[in-house]
C-alpha cells in the first residue's frame, strides 16, 4: 500500500509491503521515533497504533531540531 506524507516542506510517497500499516510504521519508514515525532491526519494527532488506510495523505511532524551551540 502507498501513503503520501507531507514532511518538512516536502511531499513524500511511502510504499509498504504489508497491508496493515500503523502510524508508528509511517514514522519508522522515515527513520523517526514516536519519542520526538508524530503523525497528523487533517487536524487530528494520531496515536502510534492508529491504522493507516491505503492512499491516505498525512502529515508528519518531527520535533527534533539541532544546531545547538554547546555552552
Amino acid at each position: 500500500m502507498k501513503v503520501k506524507v507531507h514532511y518538512r516542506g516536502q511531499l513524500k510517497e511511502l510504499e509498504f509491503e504489508k497491508q496493515s500499516v500503523r502510524a508508528v510504521d509511517v514514522l519508522k519508514a522515515l527513520g523517526l521515533s514516536s519519542e520526538y515525532a508524530f503523525v497528523v491526519r487533517g487536524d487530528e494527532i494520531l496515536d502510534e497504533k492508529e491504522i493507516i488506510k491505503d492512499g491516505e495523505e498525512l502529515r508528519v511532524i518531527n520535533a527534533i531540531s539541532g544546531g545547538l551551540e554547546y555552552l
Binding site: 518538512r8 516542506g9 521515533s33 519519542e35 511532524i61 527534533i64 539541532g66 544546531g67 545547538l68
Partner: peptide, 21 residues
C-alpha cells in the same frame, strides 16, 4: 518546520537521538 541548512550533521542532533533511545 524545516531545519536550518547549517545544522545538518550537528553533533547536538546525534546526542538528542541517543538520549531519545
Amino acid at each position: 518546520e524545516e531545519e536550518c541548512p547549517f545544522a545538518e550533521g550537528a553533533s547536538s542532533i546525534e546526542h538528542k537521538k541517543i538520549l531519545s533511545q
